Amino acid sequence: MRLVRNPERAWERAAHVQTLDRAEIERRIGPFSGEVEVLAGGHANVNVRLGADRVLRVYRRDPRAASKEASLLARGWRSFRVPAVLSAGDDFLLLEHVAHGPLQDTAACGAAAGRALAEIHGVGFDSAGFLGPDLAVAAPFADCVGALRSYVASVLDRLAPALLGELGERVSAFLDAHEGALRERASAPVLLHGDFKASNLHWLPSGELLVLDWEFAYAGPMLMDVGQLLRWGPGAEFVAAFAGAYRAHAPLADDFERWAAAFDLFNLVGLLDGVEPSSRRAIEIRGRILQTVQEER
């Protein structure tokens, strides 16, 4: 079985993982029996499996994301699975646990990802921006590409010199040189999953795609999600099947891979924020950024 390449799984395992003690869990959902297994945890959220069939997801950084994610999970998606919301609170969701396996580097998985992303992107907005719990744009961007560039500039300003190196100059030069093309290729704002990558996409025995972790969803250019999906280079069959399935429902330019990688620079620079310069995460992200700007010279 060939899996979609995903170095980010190793970053997660290497990172410090926060957890929840039993008292914190019971304060949210009441007394329970069974084992507690930490699935993932950090500054943004903590996910723990309770017994065989439930996952408690606690939002550490932004409790408001719980309501937004609950609304997205309840939309009744047709082409892919999401976990059911069993209960919710001010800073948590109690979710159904769906048994799953990793995303495979096959045409079947590529097509499933294309159908799923086309359905998600079928939700349009009048303006780009951050979403409120009702899934309306609560904080619009007056200029989407400009807002993304300002975000990148703020992250680069915070990076340690050992991590920044020549990165800031090269990223800024790339964005200056391609700003017009990025604006031309920034689609009308659509619903973005915001973290549409192999870590959050899983394969079910039924042949369905399971899509998790919607807390970063916002309205913006569709190529942002595509860039995350293709970030680590899935195989040609996967990519071709993805494109064919997506195009059955929505337009996708012939040169989408090139420009999806360019839009993913905004995501990649954000992933460097607060990272230890010598970490595997930092090394691999810097390498992917430099590969993108080098290929486009």
Rank of each mutant, 00 (worst) to 15 (best):
R2P: 15
N6K: 10
R9L: 13
A14S: 13
A15K: 11
L20I: 07
D21T: 05
D21C: 08
R22G: 06
A23R: 12
A23I: 04
G30I: 10
P31G: 03
G34T: 13
L39D: 00
A40Y: 00
G41V: 07
N45V: 02
N47L: 15
V48I: 05
L50H: 12
G51M: 04
A52V: 01
V58M: 01
R64M: 00
K68I: 03
P83E: 02
G89H: 06
G89R: 06
P102N: 03
P102I: 02
L103H: 13
A108D: 15
G110V: 04
H121L: 09
H121V: 13
V123K: 14
L131T: 07
G132H: 02
D134A: 14
A136W: 05
A136Q: 14
P140F: 13
A147Q: 15
A147D: 14
L148G: 14
S150W: 08
S154I: 07
L159E: 10
F174W: 10
F174P: 08
D176I: 02
E179P: 03
E184C: 10
E184D: 15
E184K: 12
K197C: 14
K197N: 15
K197P: 00
L201Y: 07
H202G: 00
F216K: 14
A217D: 08
Y218S: 05
M222K: 14
Q228R: 15
L229N: 13
P234G: 05
G235Y: 01
A241V: 05
A243M: 03
G244K: 01
R247N: 00
A250N: 00
D255G: 03
F256H: 06
L265V: 11
F266M: 01
G270K: 06
E276G: 10
L290Y: 01
T292H: 03
E295C: 05
R297W: 10
